[in-house]
Design a protein around this nucleic acid. Structure first.
Length: 328
DNA sequence: AAGCTCTCCAACCGCGTTTAC
DNA sequence: GGTAAACGCGGTTGGAGAGCT
């Protein structure tokens, strides 16, 4: 049985917003705020729109400080790295890119960035750069110089291993947004050394050792959510962290970091891990996109592969991953 | 110039989660 | 604790504009 519609579909306007509607919505919110009730807002604002439509318009277009236009190489790298590690969790990724919305990033990924990656890993498109075979999943990760952060095979989600170092969740301080020094996406120059360097760089940028807790992310992040729990990933105290120790903890108690740990890392990792290691490889993925046959992947499965490689890169089992051959 | 295809992205939709009662 | 309403997210769609033939 389907759920009841959020509004009377027949009486609400759909399609592109007119400048007049934008003005009405913006003026109303500037004056009164959202009031915490998007459903009632359109009527109050004199708009013949569904509340969800108003919310989306505000979050993705009218909200202050929205950044439109070209993505920088740094932004590319952040998106690629986070996508590889947490998959299509656009709101979390957006939280790392001030001014960008999840919708923007999602569109950018689907229309440009994914293709950019395809160009990098397809031998035909960059003859001469053959350090990695295009049919290996690990080559995707390597081609991208994606960070590989390994969750320690213990029950604690507070520590992660990258290279020879172990990183712990950091409490009570802010860090800079994720940034990477090199831009392999622009020069197609792949090397193992830079992969390792990048992995280390990722960990050093995002996980700092302090008080046995690890901090991920930055202040002043901005996503499509208007102050929602994942709008910022910062300032997670030890006590806050303890609050989410149980599965039943409400989302409002969680910060973005906690969401990241429990959904982005822990939940996905548990799909991959069993026996405390990589003895078994689950074909399950968060969105259930894994096929049964590792050799069945086509072009459009690539981001699934990357996404999983990532589940994946928190416990990056090169041998297992290498078995998953792609054909396209 | 016309018709077709492709690309981009704003907006919609469905559903899981959270909140309020 | 149960239920319905509302929120928020991610996947998908559709239309406008650009590019090509």
């Amino acid at each position: 049985m389907g759920r009841a519609p959020c509004c009377d579909k027949a009486s609400v306007k759909k399609g592109p917003w007119s400048p007049e509607e934008d003005t009405k919505l913006k003026e109303y919110i500037d004056k009164h705020g959202t009031g915490g009730n998007w459903i009632a807002l359109p009527q109050k604002a004199g708009l013949k729109r569904c509340g969800k439509s108003c919310r989306l318009r505000w979050l993705n277009y009218l909200r202050p400080n929205i950044k439109h236009g070209e993505f920088s190489e740094d932004e590319d790298r952040i998106i690629c790295s986070l996508y590889a590690n947490i998959g299509s969790r656009w709101s979390i990724i957006a939280a790392q890119l001030p001014g960008r919305t999840d919708n923007d990033i999602k569109n950018y990924w689907n229309t440009k960035l994914k293709r950019k990656l395809m160009g990098m890993i397809n031998p035909a498109s960059h003859a001469g750069h053959h350090h990695y075979q295009a049919n290996s999943l690990s080559s995707l990760v390597q081609a991208w110089e994606l960070p590989s952060v390994t969750q320690l095979p213990c029950s604690s989600p507070t520590s992660y291993k990258c290279g020879n170092n172990t990183y712990y969740r950091l409490a009570g301080s802010s860090t800079e947004p994720i940034s990477f020094s090199s831009s392999p996406l622009s020069n197609n120059s792949f090397s193992s050394a830079s992969v390792l360097q990048s992995q280390e760089s990722f960990a050093q940028h995002n996980y700092q050792v302090k008080e046995s807790l690890l901090m991920f992310g930055s202040e002043a992040s901005c996503s499509s959510s208007d102050g929602s729990y994942n709008n910022q990933i910062n300032h997670v105290t030890e006590s806050e962290y303890e609050n989410v120790g149980g599965r039943g903890t409400s989302k409002s108690e969680q910060t973005g970091l906690q969401e990241y740990f429990y959904n982005g890392i822990e939940d996905e990792q548990k799909l991959v891990l069993s026996n405390g290691g990589a003895e078994e490889w689950s074909h399950e993925k968060r969105n259930g996109l894994w096929g049964d046959n590792p050799s069945d992947y086509g072009l459009e499965e690539i981001n699934q592969l990357i996404s999983s490689s990532s589940c994946n890169s928190f416990l990056f089992d090169e041998n297992k991953i290498a078995e998953r051959t792609m054909y396209y």
